[in-house]
Design a protein around this nucleic acid. Structure first.
Lengths: 197, 197
DNA sequence: TCTGAACTTGACATGGTGTCAAGTTTGCCT
DNA sequence: AGGCAAACTTGACACCATGTCAAGTTCAGA
């Protein structure tokens, strides 16, 4: 019983990730996911109450697959504030491309679905915590530029690192993932660190 | 004939602006717009081929009402690169709140409608031109920080000034419009100008 | 052998966009 | 005055995706 149930659920989640990554989060219907999972459309609803519910579960599943926590420990171990800022931008900049399809779908769903909106915001709050941690680290090194305070700088960094900005720079402007990471490191350092260079 | 036709068309556009601004670009249906214009839903389609078409026309109409060109001339007249950068951020930061509802609707429509996507991109290219002009002005003053080149810096500034970032900072982070403008000026100056302060 | 969980099949409600066809109103032209 | 045409109304309908409902099938395990 439990084994086959978990199997199907996982098959759905895996298929969802596959389709969303392939199609950049757009034009993936419940029926497509069902077909890719090898079950009927209705069977999907036996495991997930709604499309939003499925998308939310999919992001969590993807975080697990990609071992989100492990990736974060590296930036958390950084010594100086500058190192920490750098490591965090590095982590996130390399993480986004791996989750983009799923994130985009949730981002779009957000506009129509309250549950999706809440889930996405919650997810993004974790990102903000990381930003605030980096800014606080800078601050306790006395390295935060005097124009900023903790809240403002954290909000600004958080905004800079949004998925939409990554989307804009890579897809719209044609930057490579590497270029994005490098530019963001430069930008963050120049923007927030006192006496750059 | 022509007078009454123009009148109805304008009435639709005005109603659309009113509703979209009031509802922050969300949950406005064709029927709502028709009702607010005092005509039937079908009559709207006599003037605009589709919802996307109406939204596109609405942004253009709004630009006219707000006298976009006039607002831009001020930043174009700036002497130094730094002044120009400042003036441009100032202009745009004060313009966004006035167009946010309509922009948001177009932004959402973009996900489903190719014509809307193209129209929005075209609209945003004008913003990019302004960014590039400011960066170029900086550059010819020898004031562009050496980490950047024209394309990278213009893309980065363009991205920073996105409507989504404004939305994020004001709505999500609770910043006032004033705080947004001030922070963006600081951010742009620190990020792109050599030897800040 | 019987039961219940997982799944299938097919029909249907909902909500919004966009289309179609047949009327009505209004104003202008000769 | 008569008549035409443009603007608009009314109501029905197709479309498309999500989500629901009900009745059946399959199959493993007690």
């Amino acid at each position: 019983m439990s084994s086959s149930e978990i199997e199907t659920r996982t098959r759905i989640l895996d298929a969802t990730i596959r389709l969303l990554q392939k199609q950049a989060g757009k034009g993936v219907r419940m029926g497509d996911i069902a077909k890719a999972s090898g079950i009927s459309r209705q069977a999907v609803y036996l495991h997930f109450a709604s499309r939003a519910d499925l998308l939310i579960a999919t992001t969590r599943h993807l975080d697990e697959i990609l071992d989100l926590d492990k990736r974060l420990t590296r930036s958390r171990a950084a010594q100086s504030g500058i190192e920490r800022l750098d490591a965090y931008v590095h982590f996130w900049g390399n993480y986004i491309p791996k989750i983009y399809g799923v994130a985009k779908a949730l981002l779009v769903a957000q506009e129509a679905d309250q549950a999706a909106a809440t889930a996405w915001q919650e997810r993004m709050l974790a990102l903000r915590d990381g930003c605030e941690a980096a800014i606080t680290a800078l601050e306790s090194d006395g390295a935060l530029a005097e124009e900023w305070n903790t809240k403002k700088a954290s909000d600004a960094l958080w905004t800079m690192l949004s998925v939409q900005n990554w989307e804009h720079l890579t897809i719209e402007c044609g930057w490579s993932s590497r270029q994005y990471v490098d530019a963001m490191k430069t930008l963050a350092r120049r923007a927030f660190v006192n006496g750059n260079e």
